[in-house]
């Protein structure tokens, strides 16, 4: 069964079409990356899936049922707009949100404490939300969306505003949830995180899907014509006739070869003037695919 099915959905606000005939399918048990430039309709789509907005046209089904039905109890949602009751203490707040999700007070209490411990914020439990740092508050919201052990987790920009340590902690937590068989749909501008976590992606632009499918399958559409070189010495080889585009970051170069460019010839030119520590022919990164696609430069 599919966890989410969005079929030909359109949503407009006045004269603005936020989502335009969008279709996507999120398989159960997968991690799905929802990417796109700012204002491309990601948040509106997520809000429709959790039934905050209603589509003007099309249909959305969650675990085979219409959005907003019984299946919505299986959703844990972390919105982009972070918000908590500032004057409430953390535990009371989590218990309140847990109870709204259908837990008893005792269950909500136990689960809240478990997650606070797991995300290393036990010291925040007795504090008022307004006394916590932004990162801490974000973790509390993250916990709030998981208290009822949902089967489907939807997170809008879950990593924004987090330091690298906390971002890694959240990544690990999402990876754990995936191994438990949960379905995760999240949006982010951090393509490296999408590459590490996601099985499938959907790239939206101006409300419409412009690229969708399994990560491996999407990447395989592009030629393996990218080279990463780590070197010491002359960088003259970066002006080789085999190269279409090159970026040099002090001994670390990322190169895109011309169509039919010869990687072996380039290696010979590079080793003639520099000591080569690494020379690797790689697929294009998701970030590059994103920029080509949204910028209209896709060559696949």
């Amino acid at each position: 069964m599919e966890a989410i099915e969005v079929r030909e959905v359109t949503k407009t606000f006045g004269s603005v079409t936020a989502v335009d005939d969008l279709t996507l399918t999120v398989p159960q048990g997968s991690v799905y990356g929802f990417i796109g430039p700012n204002g491309s309709g990601k948040t509106t789509t997520m809000r429709m899936i959790v039934n905050i907005f209603y589509p003007d046209r099309g249909a959305i089904r969650v675990f085979g049922q219409d959005a907003g039905g019984e299946s919505s109890k299986e959703i844990g949602y972390l919105p982009e707009e972070r918000g908590l009751y500032k004057k409430m203490n953390v535990l009371d707040q989590l218990i309140f949100l847990g109870r709204l999700h259908g837990l008893t007070a005792s269950e909500a209490n136990t689960t809240s404490r478990y997650w606070c411990e797991k995300l290393q914020i036990t010291e925040a439990i007795p504090k008022k939300t307004e006394d916590l740092s932004k990162g801490m508050q974000q973790k509390i919201q993250f916990i709030a969306s998981l208290l009822h052990d949902p089967e489907l987790i939807i997170m809008d920009e879950p990593f924004s505003g987090l330091d690298p340590v906390n971002a890694a902690l959240l990544m690990d937590t999402l990876a754990d949830l995936r191994t438990q068989g949960k379905t995760i749909l999240f949006s982010t501008h951090r393509m490296d995180q999408v590459e590490k976590l996601c099985d499938s992606i959907c790239l939206v632009d101006k409300g419409a899907a412009v690229l969708a499918g399994r990560m491996r399958e999407i990447k395989s559409r592009y030629e393996r014509n990218h080279v990463v070189v780590e070197f010491e010495g002359s960088d003259k080889f970066l002006s080789s006739a085999e190269i279409a585009e090159a970026k040099n970051f002090s001994g670390h170069a990322e190169i895109r070869l011309k169509p039919h460019g010869d990687a072996q010839k380039l290696l010979q030119e590079a080793s003639a003037g520099a000591t080569i520590y690494r020379f690797e022919l790689v697929e294009p990164s998701l970030e590059e695919i994103f920029i080509w696609t949204v910028g209209g430069k896709a060559d696949a």
């Binding site: 809000r47 959790v50 039934n51 905050i52 959703i75 949602y77 919105p79 982009e80 707009e81 972070r82 918000g83 908590l84 009751y85 500032k86 949100l97 709204l100 999700h101 919201q141 709030a144 969306s145």
Partner: peptide, 15 residues
């Protein structure tokens, strides 16, 4: 106050 604190979206997804 709740509008300012942005809690509404969390709540709307539940209630």
């Amino acid at each position: 106050q709740e509008k300012t604190s942005r809690i509404f979206e969390v709540m709307l997804a539940i209630a």
